[in-house]
Design a protein around this nucleic acid. Sequence first.
DNA 1: CGGTCACTTGATCGTCTTCAATACCAGTGG
DNA 2: CCACTGGTATTGAAGACGATCAAGTGACCG
Lengths: 242, 242
Amino acid sequence: VPPWNFRPPFTREAHCAPVLHVVCGKRVFCDAIPEADLRRLAGSAVGGVASPGTLFIEEGDRAAALFDITSGTARLYKLLPDGRRQITGFANGGSVLGLAVSGTYAFSAGAINTVRYCRFPRDRLRALIRDLPAMDERLLKFASTELAAAQEQMLLLGRKSARERMASFVLTRSRLGRHSPESFVLPKARGDIADYLGLTIETVVRTLKKLRDSGMIEVTNTSKMIIRDRTSLRCLADGSAT
Amino acid sequence: VPPWNFRPPFTREAHCAPVLHVVCGKRVFCDAIPEADLRRLAGSAVGGVASPGTLFIEEGDRAAALFDITSGTARLYKLLPDGRRQITGFANGGSVLGLAVSGTYAFSAGAINTVRYCRFPRDRLRALIRDLPAMDERLLKFASTELAAAQEQMLLLGRKSARERMASFVLTRSRLGRHSPESFVLPKARGDIADYLGLTIETVVRTLKKLRDSGMIEVTNTSKMIIRDRTSLRCLADGSAT
DNA sequence: CGGTCACTTGATCGTCTTCAATACCAGTGG
DNA sequence: CCACTGGTATTGAAGACGATCAAGTGACCG
């Protein structure tokens, strides 16, 4: 069995929000739904928790429910029979998983740290969407954004060098960070980064070191880094470097 | 199974359908829209044609309109400043382009053969979607399916070998073909295939030859091929080959 | 015919992978 | 307190796969 798999890194305390909050997941549902409807939605939703390292969606399973992530980070990935793994994205609070039309999930989802989510049975959700056009619009927006991100990632995987991939990765992650944009933490192990960028762990390590040596970033902890030269990084990530 | 692939994407006679047909693009809009509304939609839509080789959507431009492809095939792609290109997908009749939320198109679209489409101004479309929840649902389905395809492509680009990529490509294209599933035509040049699979033209050629030599496919014309051993091909594409 | 353009083939090269060894760090129990 | 262990990170050396460079073929067209 190859070492492609998983890992349970550090855990987070993760407060459990009240049901109505859990239900909406802020970004995606709440804003669009009137109080009354929200309560109705809450009736058919079931909250859940996935502890670090555990799987909560498995590729190929019947897509019986739609997941609304409320906190934590999950890796979304696809596997090849021999164990090769491609991480297609990461899901944070506000992400919606399980939009499949095919009837089965198109990817697996595993918790990196503690993930809290909310399951909507798909059948009941369908009726609800009909009553709430605004929600449908929200879902469409979300799917569109994801699609754009996926296309960007295809460009990365198909045409960028290892150094360019790493630069792109660091930059996008820094924009998502809540701290100062120049210093941030990635709660992802080397293996996750590798499988996200279509590289091996060794290449990730070496590339990271090269970026450090050329003064673009600084790596304190294995998972904490500081951006030193954003311009060069940007240039490298866009493929306009020498 | 993607709904927009059932249509004849390769009409060489290019019959120009009446406006109402052009407007709806059958599978995506028409079915969901009552006659009366359809007529209203027609008012704000503008039909158009892109001749082979021309660009009709350019990445980064303000996304002023939504495109509904009615016939022909387009390549959707992203470019790096130095000219590297990644084709993120192909659009056939029934495809919807321009779902961007960011306000600008996320990719460029160029016609491979003659493409007929219909432009909806985004502002007017927004109001229309509000009136027609069914259409919104259609768009969501479309986006979801595209997203699943994009994830599959990420797996291909990030983790599959050249041979595996080519096998996957041949198989998916054969499923979309309208002829006998074993013999089909790809209206795509080597360069398009290469940029879609994240390879070079030379590698595409060599890989194709290897598949031919091992008896999995037969290449008659440069763009016409016959599948000889679907099982082995499937095995190779899934990564379960020796 | 000369021209272009796409495709094909061959030889060489570089990047990333693979394989293997070592360092590191937290937790555990002697 | 300190070996011991399991999992992760790092480093080094060798090899493979696909890219690059270069040349040759064939089809189409003025």
